[in-house]
Design a protein around this nucleic acid. Structure first.
Lengths: 116, 116
DNA sequence: TCAATATATGAATAACTGTTCATATATTAA
DNA sequence: TTAATATATGAACAGTTATTCATATATTGA
C-alpha cells in the first residue's frame, strides 16, 4: 500500500480532506444525531410525529410497543434535540424539534425511492 | 394509561400516524442508511469524499486507521448505496453516491450549528 | 393528604456492530 | 508465470445498545 494511479489528483483530495475534516467533537455530535434517528423504533416515532404534536399515550398507540420502551426512545430523541417536549398537565406532549428533521427524513426516502 | 387531555386532536393524529406509517421494509431501509452514515469512522470517510473521488489508499491517508478497517466501512457504505465504486487498474476509486448524501450531511450540521 | 393517572428511569440481559488479525482475491509489471 | 501492489473479507473479541421488568416521580381530583 504505497500509492495509486491517481497520485496527483487523489493526493490533493486527501490533503484537502484532512485539512477540512470536522473536529472530533463535531463528528461525534453528527454521529449521535444520526444514531438517534437510525433505529426503527425511533424512526416510527418520528414518522408519527410528522402528523403533529402527541402525548406519550398516543405515540404508543401510533407506533406500538410498551410505554416503557417508547419513553426510553423519547428520551434519546429529546437528548439529541430531535424532538422537543412540553408538559401539559399530567401529559407530556412531544413534537419534532424543527424542520430539519422532516427534511432529512424526506431526503432519505427520496434517496431510497420509498414514499412517506 | 387510558387517555390524555387532548384526546380529540391527539387521537386524530395517532390515527393518521398509523394510517400513514411507512411499511416495515421501508422503515428498515431508512434505518440501514442512517445507521450507515452514523458511525464516526464512516462519517469521516463521507466528509473526506466531499473533496472528490479517492482510492482506498488515499481514503486511509485522509481518515486514519488501518486499511482493513477502512475497507470494511467502505463495504457497508457501498452496500447501502451511500458511496459508489469504480475500478481503475489496481485501485478502486470511491465517490459519494449522489447529491442526497451531501445534502443530508449539511442538514445535520446546520441542525447542530457546526461548520463543515 | 390519598388515590389514580401519566410518564420516566435504573438495572440486567440479549442482540448487534466495529476493529483487529490473518488471509484471500485481483491487477499489473517483469 | 511469478512477484509485488491494492483491496477485500471471514472469524473472533470487545464495546455498544434496545428491550423488559420493576419501580420512581409528577400531576390531578377527591
Amino acid at each position: 500500500m504505497l500509492g495509486c494511479n491517481h497520485e496527483a489528483e487523489h493526493h490533493l483530495a486527501a490533503k484537502a480532506a484532512r485539512e477540512n475534516m470536522p473536529n472530533e467533537a463535531d463528528i461525534a455530535r453528527v454521529s449521535e444525531v444520526f444514531k438517534a434517528i437510525s433505529e426503527p423504533s425511533r424512526l416510527k416515532i418520528l414518522f408519527a410525529l410528522r402528523q403533529g404534536e402527541m402525548c406519550v399515550f398516543h405515540i404508543v398507540e401510533a407506533v406500538g410497543g410498551t410505554q416503557s420502551a417508547v419513553s426510553h426512545q423519547l428520551r434519546i430523541l429529546r437528548d439529541r434535540n430531535v424532538i422537543k417536549a412540553r408538559r401539559d398537565g399530567q401529559n407530556i406532549a412531544y413534537s419534532l424539534a424543527d424542520e430539519h428533521v422532516v427534511a432529512v427524513l424526506e431526503l432519505a426516502c427520496a434517496h431510497l425511492n420509498c414514499k412517506i
